[in-house]
């Protein structure tokens, strides 16, 4: 009864899946990437709509309801995650804290990305003296202890969101420069670059429309890794009291403030730490996943 297949084979049966189909299959089959992407998108949503989602004002203190336990430890739904030592709603502070972390991570990674990419691409493309200078600068940057220099600069200039972002942006460009230099070196010798040069394309045109599109995969991966790095560093600086200043709701600051009471109220330290861990884990999984999907040959 089965109908015998008499039609000619379809185009896709001959040519196999298109690159787009392969990509889609790789993305949907990659649990880590999907999980990371989901968590990052949820936290991004929370950060953007913080004023609508937060049940209370994150700055509003209340002396009568200090250190209320979270609902799973016998608290009430009035404060689902309890309140801190000044009676501020913990969930609201957590929600606004997502803004601080994501903003610092994104802007710092963008600044260092621009610096590092410019240096790395210039070194890889021009080689010679430019390469020597950039390699030297990378060496200098790697020799300086990031946490120490960042703490010292923040202490001198005063802790604020802008200073922390600026310091991290100016310090975290090393991996961008290293990876972009190596990627440019690989791409530079390809025929299409030689072809573009042969037909008289300007240097900026060769770099922007021949080199950049072919190394942007690697760039995106480093952006995610450095974003995670910047978020962790901001938390560490704020924890040490030399990052974002109180009363700004920063997760690192929340851990620092909860630390003195962690013996009796360990959730004050646990909750912001777990959220911070989840965000950084998600960003890293997203970065690893993007690398696996777009450039599986770079997997180590």
């Amino acid at each position: 009864m089965s109908v015998k297949k008499t039609t000619a084979p379809l185009m896709e049966e001959i040519t196999g899946p298109t690159p787009r189909q392969i990509l889609r299959k790789r993305v949907t089959g990659h649990t880590g990437l999907l999980f990371g992407l989901a968590v990052v998108l949820i936290l991004l949503f929370v950060a953007i709509f913080a004023p609508l989602l937060a049940p209370h004002d994150p700055y509003a203190q209340s002396l009568s309801s200090r250190m209320v336990s979270p609902v799973f430890l016998g608290g009430t739904w009035e404060h689902p995650l309890g309140t801190d030592h000044l009676g501020r709603d913990y969930l609201s502070r957590l929600i606004y804290g997502a803004r601080v972390s994501l903003l610092i991570g994104a802007v710092a990674a963008a600044i260092s990305g621009v610096i590092g990419t410019a240096m790395g691409v210039a070194a890889g493309y021009f080689g010679g003296k430019v390469d020597a200078v950039v390699t030297f600068l990378i060496n200098v940057r790697l020799a300086m202890p990031v946490v120490l220099v960042a703490l010292a600069v923040v202490a001198i200039l005063g802790g604020s969101l802008q200073v922390v972002i600026g310091v991290l942006g100016l310090l975290l460009w090393d991996r961008f420069a290293v990876v972009m230099r190596a990627s440019t070196l690989q791409v530079r010798r390809r025929e299409y670059v030689a072809a573009a040069q042969a037909i008289g394309a300007s240097t900026s045109r060769v770099i922007l429309s021949e080199i950049m599109p072919n190394i942007v995969n690697n760039l995106i991966v480093i952006v995610t890794l450095e974003m995670a790095h910047a978020i962790l560093l901001e938390a560490a600086l704020s924890f040490l009291g030399l990052g974002v200043q109180p009363p700004t709701p920063s997760w690192g600051l929340m851990i620092s403030e909860g630390k003195n009471m962690m013996l009796f109220e360990p959730w004050l330290v646990l909750i912001p730490g777990v959220v911070l861990f989840m965000l950084v884990l998600a960003i890293n999984l997203m970065g690893d996943g993007l690398r696996d999907v777009t450039a599986p040959e770079n997997r180590s």
Binding site: A228, L270, G273, N284
Partner: peptide, 22 residues
């Protein structure tokens, strides 16, 4: 290795102090 890279070291330290120290 994935979890290790995401763990804030100061937080990990505090957790160890609470669990093993206290």
């Amino acid at each position: 290795s994935v979890a290790g890279q995401a763990m804030p070291s100061f937080w990990f330290g505090l957790i160890l102090i609470v669990v093993f120290g206290i």
